[in-house]
Amino acid sequence: MIKVTNLHKTYTAGELEVKALRGVSLEIGRGEFIALAGPSGSGKTTLLNIIGCIDGADSGDVKIGEKSVMNLKKNDQAMFRRDNLGFVFQSYNLIPVLTAFENVAFSLNLMGIGEGDIRERTMAILKEVGLEGMENRRPGRLSGGQQQRVAIARAIVKNPEILLADEPTANLDSNTGREILELMKRLNQSHQSTFIFATHDPMVMDFADRLVRLHDGAIESDTRR
C-alpha cells in the first residue's frame, strides 16, 4: 500500500554533507501500526516527512496506493495531503485562535465538506478522543494531553489513508503518553488508517505491531510481532 523504494537524501549545510537517508526501501500495508525507531539523527523524521509529502528526496520513489507522490506539483501535493494524510506533531501544533471544535472541523473545511456533515463528524470524533464538553476551549485552556487529543482528532477525522506522527508522546508524561497511545491504537482499528510513528519512546515501540530500526540513514532491522 505504501511502497518506499531506494530513498536517498543528503542535506548540505555549508561545507558539511549529511547523508540522512541512504537507500531506504520499505513496504507498509494498510492499517499497520508501525514505529520507526533509531538513534537521534538516524533519519526517522526525514523518512516520515518524505512519506508524508512535506519533504522531497534526492532519488528513489514513494508510492501511496498506486500513486507515485514524489513528483507531484506543489498544489497537487497539498491536495493529496489534505485528502489522504493526517499529521500529529510532537508539540501538537494546534491553531491557537481556533477552539478544539474548530481545529478539528477546519481540516474537513479544507476538503470542502458541508457544514452539517462537518459538525456531526467533528462532534463524534471529539467524543471518541474523550473531549466531550471541551469543544469550545481554545488550545491555551487545554492540557498537553488534551491538546494532543485534539491534534489526533484533527488528523483522524478525515479518515486518512495514513496518519503520520513524529514523536507524539515526547512532550507528555508517561501516563498521558500511554493514554494517547491507547487512543491511537483504538483509532487505528476503528478507522482503518495506517499509523506511522517516528519515535525514541520505548513505550511507542511496545505498542507498535511492527518496528523498523534505522541507523545512519539505513534500515537496520524490521521486526513484526
Partner: peptide, 16 residues
C-alpha cells in the same frame, strides 16, 4: 511560520 507549516501539512494550498 510553524503554523504555516502545520496548515500546509494539513493540505492548505499556498494561495490559501
Amino acid at each position: 511560520m510553524n503554523e504555516i507549516g502545520t496548515l500546509a501539512a494539513m493540505g492548505m494550498k499556498g494561495s490559501q
